[in-house]
Design a protein around this nucleic acid. Structure first.
Length: 182
DNA sequence: AACGAGGTCAACCGCGCTTAC
DNA sequence: GGTAAGCGCGGTTGACCTCGT
């Protein structure tokens, strides 16, 4: 098993200080993102590259939209989750200013319960059939190329609990099988 | 006011994929 | 083609906060 990257040297862990944040912001503003592994040393931070990347992407990036999710965003997350399962980065990619971590946390803390209470989601059968047999890398490309109108085809329907509870796990299972067989 | 339960969210961990050599 | 290192992702953890008793 590979050693964790942070074992190499003594690294700071836990919450970031204001000073650390400022160092990271200053460095990225001057040099841009990229080469996270060498960034901490260059920026004078005692953090591993992964930790810097996460801090920047999830918290410090200037284009982040802070605050609670709107109804539109909520609805989109539900539809996308029906389509993709736990592919948080893909889902977050459709929500400007939101991160995968944020979407994942919101799903686990709010939406999961909400859907359990009101029923769950479904897909149009023809769209599902098409997606259901795609290997994962094809699915990612397919999804990234997808128009917003196509995403909108995935409807929420509280009356279809029975159908979706069968279809969604099957979607994930078939993707796993496709990957295993490739 | 004190305390416990439950919720939230930033951060960490480990795995798998990609890329460079 | 094989290997090692870097990167990105999803799952999980734990500190902190809020609310009810």
């Amino acid at each position: 098993m590979r050693k964790p990257c942070c074992e190499k040297t003594e690294m700071t862990k836990g919450a970031w200080s204001i000073q650390e944040d400022q160092k990271l912001i200053d460095y990225i503003q001057k040099h841009g993102e990229g080469c996270w592994n060498s960034l901490p040393k260059a920026a004078g931070l005692r953090r591993c590259g992964k930790s810097c990347r996460l801090r920047w992407i999830n918290y410090l990036r200037p284009d982040l939209k802070r605050g609670s999710f709107g109804e539109d965003e909520e609805d989109l997350i539900i539809r996308l989750h029906t389509l993709l399962g736990n592919r948080w980065s893909l889902i977050a990619g459709r929500l400007p200013g939101r991160t995968d971590n944020e979407v994942k946390n919101y799903w686990n803390s709010h939406l999961k319960k909400k859907l359990l209470n009101i029923g769950t989601t479904t897909l149009r059968p023809n769209k599902l059939r098409e997606i259901n047999h795609a290997p994962y890398n094809k699915l990612v490309k397919y999804f990234n190329d997808m128009d917003d109108e196509v995403v909108d085809e995935v409807s929420t329907d509280s009356a279809s609990t029975e159908i979706s509870s069968c279809l969604v796990p099957k979607l994930n299972l078939d993707l796993s099988l496709s990957l295993a067989l490739e």
